[in-house]
Design a protein around this nucleic acid. Structure first.
Length: 118
DNA sequence: AATTTGACCCGTC
DNA sequence: AGACGGGCCAAAT
């Protein structure tokens, strides 16, 4: 039998789960659209995440912590949102260059570089 | 009910 | 790093 790779999910519930994941991104950290979707139990639905953010009106939602998989900001360069996102990220200590976020932060020690934090 | 759209993603070159 | 092509999937037209 052919098991579906992912189950269909009630839209309202899916939306809620996605928003929850975004709200749970720690300060100073970022996540890709696809990663958010996956964490919400909706693999392959990165574009749904994008749509939700586009429609979102909740000022408390840390939407700025969501980036494209290549680490770049997902809005037209120079646009209002683009500038605000860069600024918000920097305010949290995230390094942003030309709308691109460096995920591989310079490690504070060689141990961290090799074994990672923790 | 068919087509278009979107703050996307991935392999390849 | 950047360019291209093809794939993806729910929501809006």
């Amino acid at each position: 039998m052919k098991a579906p790779l992912n189950e269909s999910v009630d839209p309202a519930l899916g939306h809620a789960r996605i928003l929850k994941v975004i709200r749970n991104i720690p300060r100073g950290q970022v996540l890709g659209y696809g990663e958010v979707a996956a964490k919400a139990g909706l693999p392959g639905r990165a574009r749904l995440v994008a749509r939700l953010l586009g429609n979102n009106d909740d000022p408390d939602l840390p939407w700025h912590r969501v980036l494209r998989s290549d680490g770049r900001i997902a809005m037209p360069e120079g646009s209002r949102g683009w500038r605000e996102q860069s600024q918000r990220l920097r305010a949290e200590g995230v390094v942003v260059e030309n709308g691109r976020v460096k995920r591989a932060k310079p490690a504070n020690s060689m141990d961290e570089a090799i074994w990672g934090p923790g």
